[in-house]
């Protein structure tokens, strides 16, 4: 293992933003941080807690509390403002689908210039998935690279920092919206067969979240003339 790590270790600075809305997620920080540090240098890191109430634990890296809570989409913008490095890696600490390989492939790919935006999309729970299929996926499946965006859960997102400095986000996500703003050949979406859980704090809000996302996507696509009147 040590040999593989040494072989794959690359010398670059990436800013890391880990996010969670639970105390359980916070307890994973140290482990995840140790893993990524094994493979590449991390220049600056933050944890963004987007739940409520504030956690009582003190994590080993700076903790930022998001206002208003539960706005997962906004935390990407906040993260991009907090760090100064041009490449930023977002890790969802609440995801059950975090794997070393996914992290390393993502960072490697972006550092090598294969893409500017990358995210992994695991399978989602039925509530979110049904709402997503009903209001969002039907609309975006014709457009590359969004056709790969089959589920509304996300484990890792990595990209150029400037891409995340936008006011275009929803309470649940920012990924589909910034994917549309990035040249399609520079976006990579990796579907993962792992089944991810939606945090219990936001369960029951799937339809609302997906309706908001559908509205924002509709406006974006329509403004570019990509969406036909009939749709």
């Amino acid at each position: 293992m040590a040999g593989i790590e040494a072989e794959r270790r690359f010398y670059t600075n990436v800013s890391t933003v880990m996010y969670t809305l639970s105390h359980r997620g916070l307890s994973k920080t140290k482990y995840v941080y140790r893993v990524i540090h094994r493979y590449f240098d991390v220049s600056e890191s933050y944890i963004i807690f987007y739940g409520y109430p504030r956690p009582k634990v003190s994590p080993p890296i700076p903790l930022y509390l998001l206002d208003p809570p539960y706005s997962r989409g906004k935390l990407f913008v906040v993260g991009a403002k907090l760090v100064q490095n041009p490449v930023i890696l977002y890790i969802n600490l609440d995801s059950n689908c975090l794997k070393e390989d996914l992290l390393i492939d993502a960072v490697e790919g972006i550092i090598d210039g294969h893409f500017q935006l990358y995210f992994t999309v695991p399978l989602s729970t039925p509530e979110f998935l049904e709402a997503y299929r009903a209001s969002v996926y039907g609309m975006i499946k014709e457009f590359k690279p969004l056709e790969n965006l089959q589920y509304p859960s996300y484990t890792i997102a990595i990209g150029k920092r400037k891409l995340f400095l936008t006011a275009d986000y929803t309470p649940w996500s920012i990924e589909p919206l910034i994917a549309l703003d990035t040249p399609m050949e520079l976006v990579r979406i990796r579907n993962d067969t792992c089944i991810d859980a939606i945090p219990e704090e936001v369960r029951g809000f799937g339809k609302i979240f997906m309706d908001i996302l559908a509205k924002k996507l509709t406006l974006k696509l329509a403004s570019r003339g990509m969406l036909k009147q009939s749709k």
């Binding site: 930022y64 509390l65 206002d67 906040v78 403002k81 907090l82």
Partner: peptide, 8 residues
């Protein structure tokens, strides 16, 4: 209005 802006 947001602390991240104050920090930066």
């Amino acid at each position: 209005d947001d602390d991240q802006d104050n920090i930066v």
